[in-house]
Structure formats: C-alpha cells, structure tokens
Nucleic acid binder design. Structure first.
Lengths: 206, 206, 206, 206
DNA sequence: TCCTAATCGAGACGGTACGTCTCGTCTTAGT
DNA sequence: ACTAAGACGAGACGTACCGTCTCGATTAGGA
C-alpha cells in the first residue's frame, strides 16, 4: 500500500514550538482582530518557520480552535466540570448565562471566539471538530444539569433537552454574533425567565 | 466650503454596472464560497472596473448585503409584508419557522447569507446597517404577529417581544450557523412548541 | 479569438519603475553576487512590488540581460560603433582584446556578466535573445574590422570570419569563465599573435 | 588538542550511500536540469538522509564534480590516457575535437557539464579544484601531443602550448556554453584548420 | 564477543525566497 | 464625471529547499 503524503510524525513534534504558536495566535487575534490575522504574522511572533504551522494545522481556523481549547480549558479538569446545582434551576441558569454573557463581552475572548465562529460558518470539517470537541462536551454538561432539574420536578419531563439548551443559549450567542442589541446580564435573566415560563399565558387553562 | 474628497455623484451612476456587480457578487459567492470571493473576481465577472466597485461600496460585506437586499426582497412589496395570522399562533409560527429553515437549507441562499453573517461578526458598521435595514424590519413584522397573539390572549401579556422573537428564531439561526446538528422542519416545530409551553412543568400550580 | 492571458499593455508601463528595477538589479548583483540575488531583494531595493517585476520580465536572467543592455550600451550610439582601424590589424586587435580583458576584470562588470552567462548556459530562450541582441551586433562589428583587414590583404581571404572571431575572443572569454588561469593583457597579446600567425611553423614549406 | 568539529571518519563511510548519491545526482541533473536540482531531491532519490550528503560534500557543485569525475573517468585508467598520434597533427586534432563536440552534444553529458560549469563560474574554490583535478590533467595530455608535434616539426617551436590549447578548444567550449550557433563536427574541423594555418595570408612573405 | 562511537535513514526545525493572488489606489482613454 | 481597463506598491498565501538539529537503528572496528 503506497503511502499518500507521509503524514508528519507527531512523536518528533516540538512542544515548545506548538505552545509558542498557540500563544502567538491568541495574542495576535486579540491584538489585531481576525481580519488582520495572518499565518505569516503568527509564525513571526512565535519565532517559528511557517512550515511548522502548515505541517501541523490544516487551516487557520483549526489553529485558532486548538489555541482556544488549549488555553480556555487550561484550568479545568475536563470531565469533572459541572454546572452549579443549588436546587433552584432558574437561579443556577441565570448564573451560568450571566457568566456566558460576561465571557463573551470580555475583550480577551471576544475576538478569538468571533474568529472561530467565522471559520466554523464556512468550514464544515472544522464545524464537526468544534461540535465534537467543544460544543458537545459543554452541551452534555448543560443537559446534565437539566436532567437533574427534571428529576427534581423543575423541568417538564417530555422536553427535548437539546432543544432546551438551544432555547436558553441560542438567543445569547446569536445576539453576540449579530450585535443586534447590546448583550447584558439582564438580557440573560430575561431569556431564562421567558424560556422557563414559556410564551403562552399561564393563567389560561391550556 | 471646499469639498473634502469629491463624494461620488449618484445621479451619474450607471445602473447597468450596479446590477451587473450585484448579480456577479451573488453568483460568485454561490459558486466559489465566501473564502474565495474577491473584489477582483467580481469586477471581472461583471465586466466592470475595480474602481467602480470601490467607488460605490465601502466594503465587500456592504456589497454583499446590498446584493442580498436587492434580490432577496425582489418579489415582495416591502411594507405590505406580514406574517400569516390564521388565529392559531403555534401553527403560524411553525409555518414561518419551517419556511426559514427551508430558505437556510436552500443552496442559493446558504452561501451568501453565511458570507454576510461572517462580515457582520467582524464589522460593527455593517452590523448596524444590517440591524437597521434587514433584521429590524423583519423583527418588527414578527413582533407585530406576536402582538396580535397577545391581543388574542394566546401570548402572555408581560413577555418582552424581542426576547420572544429571539427565543423562537435564535435557536434555528444558531444551529444553521454552527452546524451542530442538521436543520430540519421537525426541529422548527419542536422549538415553537417548547418556546410556547416553556421548560417548566405545566401541571404544577406555581 | 479568446485572448490567452491578456499580455501586459506596455503603453501604460511606468518608466520610473523600470529604471529603478534595472538599477537595483545591477547594484545588487555587484554587491551580493549572483547566488544571493533574489527577485524579492531587487523589488525591495527598487521600492517596487514583486508583481511589477514578474509582469515585465520572464526570468531573472532576462532582467539581468536587460539591465546590462540598458546601462552597458548607455553611452554609445548603437550602430555607429566600430572597432579601431589604424591599418595595423595586430595592434588594433590587441587593443580591443586588452579592453575586453580589462572590462572582464572590472568588478563592476564581472559579477553581472558571470550571472548572465550562467543563465544563458541553462536557458536556451535567453541564449537566443543574447545571441540576437548582444553577441550578434558585437560579432558583426568585429567581423567588419576583419573584412577590412581582408581587403587590405592582412587577413587570409578564405578564412571564415565567424571562426576567426571565435579564435580571437573564445580563449579570453573561456579563461574568464573557467578561471583556469589569471586573465592578463599579456595573454590577450599572445592570443592575437598566435591566432594571426597560426600554430604551424612558418619557415617550413608545407 | 581539542578537535574542532569532529571531522568525519572516512573509514566508516558507507560506499553504498556514496554511489547512490552520485548516481542520483547525475540522473536527476539530466532529468530535471540544473535549476531544479536540489539536495533534498538527490537525498530522496538516493534513499539517503540529507545529512549524509552534507557530511561528505561541501557544496552541490562539489558533489556534481565528484559525480562527473567518478563516472566519466570510469572506463579509463587515469594516467595511461593519451591523445592519438598518427603523425598527422591536423587529423589527430580533428579527431579529438570532433569527439569533444560529440560528447558535448550527448544529452547524457550536456546537462551535468553545464551544471558544473555554472558552479565553477561562481565558486572560485570549485574552480581551483576543477583546474587541478580535471582541466589540468586533460590539458597536460593535450600539451603532450602538441609537444610531440613540435618535436616532429609540425608545430612552431615558439608557440605557448597553453595558448595553443586554448585556441583549439576554447572556441568549441564557448560555442557550446553560449549556444551562439549549433556545435557541429564541421566547426571542429574549421577551428583546427584555421588555428593551424593562422589568420594571416600565407602567400605573403612577411 | 561484546562495547561503543560514528554513520546511517528519517524528518522536524527556523528560515528565505519563490511565483501567485488580491488588496485598495492611481492613471489613462473613451464615452 | 463617470466608465472599463489595468499598472502600481504592498504584502499574505502556501510550497520548496536550505542547512542544522535531533532521533533511534545499524554497523563497524578496538577491547
């Protein structure tokens, strides 16, 4: 069987170069914005040859994603992460959604995440990677909290949890991406309240 | 008063060139995808000098937006547009959301809209323009239908209509942009049902 | 008939850029030598975009040749040039060959000419161009002087003038290119004397 | 005395690798031409690590030279080589010069020799090596034949033999390198005849 | 016979330059 | 004044090689 292109041997990979590249990528995207981010610039800032980037990452988006994964998930253990559960679903969700809002408003995260989302929009392969490695685990954590709420009788048992997660987080992410209106903690509260209560009047009998 | 930069005189503008450019832009973005779309290519495809593009549009995103506005809103009258109102809110919303899903899945719209969203993500000026000229009017139409539902007692009176719109359309738009899962008509129905009913159990009295 | 690649329109060509590029090329090849001469470097030194070079010259060799032609032939009229004719063929040839030796030893000409010859060795198209535009005219001038010598009875009438030119100038050029031995004015004299007299003994009858 | 750089120990040298490299170099230069010849390519074609090349040869030119020396001088004994001596100097020289022409026109030799000459033009160290190991011995063989001719009274006694060799072989080598005109056996004959007879008329007595 | 040190293949690394592409500006003719 | 055309300075793209630098894995002699 003839080998296709001799894939790089990751055992020989330089960890120093890898970290320098990821750091430089995050620094530069925060500094210059996504539009002015170039592989050339990242290589120069990291003190690395361009080929070293092209060797290990298939696209600028994949590099950015890797950078985000590496440094954003730096502190936490990975699997041990869970949403708070004080017994009060509405309060817990507001806390989480407000934290999300705060993070999205944080300049340090804003630019890289916009960049990543831009790439995802146009690159199905990267989207799949994102869904598997970032969105998937996060979504599972959220669904876990909602499952607990179902067990506690605070959430309807027949609700599709994926839809529930989308209902809660979709509006916030959307407003952030589209900038249709400022993204405030109050908005997060509103979304939680409205999503939990539903749009239909409660005093009517169905 | 000395003129600053001799602003282009739109009275002399060539309508033929304008339409050729907008058409070429939509064609090319559908053909090549956003990443390979270039001003240079649009000019060549439209049989137009590059300067003619730079003279009339401030950015590639603005051009794309213009193209979308010009051709997407082609058939409809503009103000007369309204959401259907059969008296059955859930059914009407499902109809609209399914139509949205269908449009987003339509290849002819998919690429240009992704491109526009990408630009919006990074260009606040364009985002404002988008909010004012496209999202705003559409949102108003949706809110009008919801207001009617409030009058008919099918929607809680104290619900913020903007949040309601976000709750209904945000998840769909999000799933489209992020490709976390396939975007189906059934999902549209689920979102409507869940948003209307709310996440909380209905059989509890409080 | 579809146009192939839309050849550049030389009427719009920037003369300033052209001269800056040719000057920079000659300067740099003299400064760094041929091996370290790069298009990138020439463009930077000339304050010019790389594309402007690639647009007008098919290869580094063609550019160098152009530079040499432009500046080496700067002073002289072009057609009026002729070799000296004092009536003494040997003296005239020695003068010319000594001048050739001096020029080849001149650092200002040495590097660019070596570079050009290197390119010619590997690029038949450039070789043809060289033969037509530089070697051809020069050879004609030399042959003209030899024709005059034939008329004056100082040169055998049945000698092929091209071979005669090669016999006189070939050894000098060769020694320069191959560095087999130092290239001195005395060597020029020796070549002229030997070529004129021939290798065979003169006092023998056969 | 501390060793400077740990010079390679040639006793441990792999003869298989050496021959594979030299063979690959000659093959590739004939196949791709000199411009596209790369150390990387030679190493790959030879199935050899790049370092093995860099360890044993100081430059691409030295490698090429080595390759030429190894395979071009393969059949012949080395010292026993001598030019033919039938007693007829002109005939002998024509034979040799025609053989030279044939070799230079041989595709198998053309490319590598051009490559070597290119390197020599720019690399004085290689030029010295070439002069000592290839040009020198060959020139000595040629001069030996000319000396015999002098003894036989077929060559003027006061002619500088180096100049004589240059006069005979320079024109041919030059026409080959510069491609000013096709290199034919007839040209070789003409050069020999003209060089032997001289350019001056023979019927004049002085 | 084992030891050990140099050579081997392989290929990652920091770099430089390549030739192409597009950017946004500027210039030239032609309506 | 606008247009089509396209040259220009600028600079990023992704590729190809450069020459240096580890890596194990042979592969010789010298002990």
């Amino acid at each position: 069987m003839p080998k296709q292109k001799t894939a790089p041997d990751s055992s020989r990979r330089s960890e120093a170069a890898r970290r320098a590249i990821l750091t430089a990528a995050l620094d530069l995207v925060g500094e210059l914005g996504y539009a002015k981010l170039s592989i050339e610039g990242i290589a120069a800032a990291a003190g690395v040859g361009k080929q070293t980037i092209y060797r290990w990452w298939p696209s600028k988006g994949a590099l950015l994603f890797d950078a985000l994964l590496t440094f954003a998930t730096d502190g936490q253990d990975g699997q041990s992460a869970a949403l708070p559960d004080t017994g009060d679903l509405a309060a817990d969700l507001k806390l989480v959604l407000r934290a999300t809002v705060a993070e999205l408003n944080e300049p340090r995260y804003d630019q890289p995440m916009r960049a990543l989302h831009t790439e995802i929009v146009h690159d199905p392969a990267l989207a799949a990677d994102y869904a598997e490695r970032l969105d998937g685990p996060m979504r599972e954590i959220k669904k876990e909290r909602l499952r607990a709420a179902q067990r506690a009788g605070q959430l309807a048992g027949d609700v599709d949890l994926d839809v529930a997660v989308d209902l809660l987080f979709g509006p916030v992410l959307n407003r952030w991406l589209q900038r249709t209106a400022p993204l405030t903690p109050e908005y997060a509260d509103q979304v939680v309240d409205t999503a939990l209560r539903g749009l239909r009047p409660r005093d009517r009998q169905g």
